[in-house]
């Protein structure tokens, strides 16, 4: 039974990868008109990606999904709003502050700020700027998950939050330094990592299932969306303050 699923999943993962391979090969050979460098490496790499994707999906169903849902149910039974919100905040903050994509983007932003004369152009100022940026993004994600969980419990419609967030982004953009805007907009997209997403999704859906009167389809989703919106506002605000 388990073996069958593994083979089936392997095949599915391979299908997921076919489009990328096709794009890369077609462009390399037909458009750019050059041979593929190092075919053996390409094949080994592809086998790794397929294997990795397969293990990830199997592990997802074995651990991350059930774990997120089990915790949501446990918190719902416990009935302590304070601890649930603390957990939501910690989950958002803790997963984001160590996120490699965010570290990369924060360093980049610090370099730009140094060049643009927003901060002193020495390494110490840049390091502290990058760290400040990372912490403000992590705070914003923690805050977003907290508010998102509160929304599921209270049953507020999701679009109030999203429209509010959009208005915040639009209002703050004209006042933010021009150099920071692109990075701020991008930082919204990179904060949600491969492990956070399944966990947070399962938490939201689990809560919406456990609480009476909530529909998991309508109320369960939306945590990720809000968590990719608030960093834009926080990063621009950070750029304005410093």
């Amino acid at each position: 039974m388990f073996k069958n699923r593994f083979v089936k999943q392997l095949f599915n993962s391979f299908l997921d990868l076919v489009p990328i391979l096709a794009v890369v090969l077609v462009f390399q050979v037909l458009v750019i008109g050059q041979p593929i460098p190092d075919v053996a490496r390409l094949i080994t790499g592809t086998v790794f990606v397929v294997l990795g994707l397969t293990l990830f999906v199997l592990g997802l169903e074995l651990s991350l999904f059930p774990l997120g849902e089990a915790m949501a149910h446990a918190f719902a039974r416990k009935g302590s709003l304070f601890w649930l919100l603390t957990f939501a905040f910690c989950l958002g903050f803790g997963t984001t502050v160590a996120e490699p994509a965010l570290i990369a983007i924060a360093d980049e932003a610090a370099r730009i700020a140094g060049k643009g004369g927003l901060i002193a152009a020495n390494p110490e100022a840049q390091t502290s700027y990058a760290l400040g940026l990372r912490i403000s993004v992590a705070l914003s994600v923690g805050f977003a998950i907290l508010v998102g969980v509160l929304r599921i419990i209270r049953g507020w419609p999701l679009y109030y939050l999203i429209i509010g967030g959009y208005c915040g982004v639009m209002l703050i953009t004209p006042f933010a330094p021009k150099e920071i805007i692109g990075i701020a907009y991008d930082s919204g997209g990179v904060t949600t990592s491969t492990i956070t997403v399944p966990l947070v999704t399962a938490l939201g859906v689990g809560l919406a299932t456990a609480i009476k009167g909530r529909n998991p389809m309508i109320d369960g989703f939306g945590l990720i969306a809000f968590a990719s919106l608030t960093p834009m506002i926080f990063v621009m605000a950070y750029g304005m303050l410093i």
């Binding site: 080994t44 790794f48 990606v49 990795g52 293990l55 199997l58 169903e61 651990s63 991350l64």
Partner: peptide
């Protein structure tokens, strides 16, 4: 849960490694 967690870890490591190598 632990098995699943290890699968996820290995999966992501293989996935990233393969991407770095090939794509």
């Amino acid at each position: 849960t632990l098995t699943g967690f290890i699968f996820v870890l290995l999966g992501i490591a293989f996935f990233l490694e393969g991407l770095e190598m090939a794509l």
